[in-house]
Write a protein that binds this DNA or RNA. Structure first.
Lengths: 122, 122
DNA sequence: GCAACCTTGACACGAGCGTGTTAGGGTTAC
DNA sequence: GTAACCCTAACACGCTCGTGTCAAGGTTGC
């Protein structure tokens, strides 16, 4: 049995049990359940919780923001719309004259496309 | 002078003057100022405000979320970190089919819509 | 069989978001 | 020179986020 219950998982990940349930509700880390409904955190979930903590602390991000990032990933229309609005920023002639921003934007797209995940399951 | 003051800009964009100031403070649309400090909305800003409104309404996004998207664009390290965490998701079929997080999101929608009686969906 | 866990639900609470409004003071138009 | 605008600052309010805590009830370990 290499699966921990919610309080054990809390102890080894630095979250509180309350937050583990909240994180599950927000859809970011959802452990499987036992027959009786107990949350069972395996190594994958534990790792995920630790890296999530790392991410939030290092970049001062909230759970809701990570959730939004995922929503953008999953909804191509949304991501395109947001990206389009953002890339239209500062289109006043002064800014465009340099031509710098365009290359920057193109690079950005390159990175986005290159980052598309292949949905690896292991 | 094809620049509008804050109330005029509000009238033609569908925002309130209050929101125009709030949007500026959130860093999304910052019009230049007159010598006396008056906000001067030119065609570029007006267009930007209209498309922003469009974006928020069509995709049910908040100003803070658009701000976060921009923050990700501008901070490659942040974007890479978020993307990496999301792409490492161990997607077991159960998690996806349960749809728990989706219901959570939809509940938010329900509550939002319930607060605006004339927009009731039936 | 009972202590120690687990479940969901709820109340609480400070911080931030999205909005209106009001107050006190400067600017513009005519 | 005054009415109608603009500015910032602030109070207010309901909602969401991130947390803790507590209650009522089911499960597990020994």
């Amino acid at each position: 049995m290499d699966a921990l219950t919610v309080n054990e998982a809390a102890a080894t990940t630095g979250w509180s049990a309350r937050m583990l349930r909240y994180i599950e509700r927000s859809g970011l880390v959802s452990p499987p359940r036992s027959a009786a409904g107990y949350r069972l955190y395996g190594p994958a979930e534990l790792q995920r919780l630790r890296t999530l903590r790392e991410l939030l602390e290092r970049h001062d991000v909230g759970l809701a923001e990570v959730g939004f990032a995922r929503r953008m990933r999953d909804d191509a229309g949304l991501e395109a719309a947001v990206e389009e609005w953002l890339s239209a920023q500062a289109l006043r002639p002064d800014d465009v004259s340099s031509g710098e921003w365009l290359r920057f934007e193109q690079d950005k797209h390159q990175r986005l496309l290159a980052a598309q995940p292949e949905l690896e399951v292991r």
